[in-house]
């Protein structure tokens, strides 16, 4: 496949690439994660028991809870964080947390629902400084 470019709002954090983990569910570091094991722990979450470590995590929006702002920093300090998180629309907390953690984060995609545009397993490059996410490879299954 040729690469697919997805334009979004300018984000925060460094340029990164990795494998996508996608859900149309929402995200909170406090509510949803076992941060020690690096997995989604909330039984009702659509990614329950999945590892998010080093993934390009693609979710719908952020849920309540201000703790995620510190938690992204803490997770990154142990190398147990996603490489990037992409949202349809994020709340202030997660963006603030990404700024402290120096984690790549983007939202507001021009072409619609990012949880449909990117598939789990896609190899994705994220460039927050110019608001660009590129799907580099997609395994046909």
């Amino acid at each position: 496949m040729t690469s697919i470019e997805l334009r979004c709002h300018v984000g925060v954090g460094p340029k990164v690439d990795g494998v996508a983990l996608v859900t149309d569910d929402n995200f909170s570091a406090r509510y949803d994660l076992d941060r020690i094991k690096g997995i989604f722990s909330r039984p009702q979450h659509k990614l329950a028991d999945e590892s998010y470590v080093d993934k390009i995590l693609v979710v719908n929006t952020a849920k309540g809870g201000v703790a995620s702002a510190w938690m992204l920093h803490e997770m990154a300090s142990r190398g147990m964080a996603p490489r990037a998180i992409l949202f349809n629309r994020v709340n202030p907390i997660l963006a603030q947390g990404a700024a402290l953690a120096n984690m790549a984060m983007c939202d507001r995609f021009n072409d619609g629902d990012v949880t449909n545009l990117i598939k789990t397993g896609d190899h994705v490059m994220v460039q927050p400084d110019i608001g660009l996410v590129t799907i580099l490879r997609r395994d046909d299954r």
Binding site: R30, V66, A69, W70, M71, H73, E74, S77, R78
Partner: peptide, 15 residues
Amino acid sequence: MMADTESLGEAGVVF
């Protein structure tokens, strides 16, 4: 400010 140490962790406290 919300700043419990479960959220901060060692890294946050050092910061």
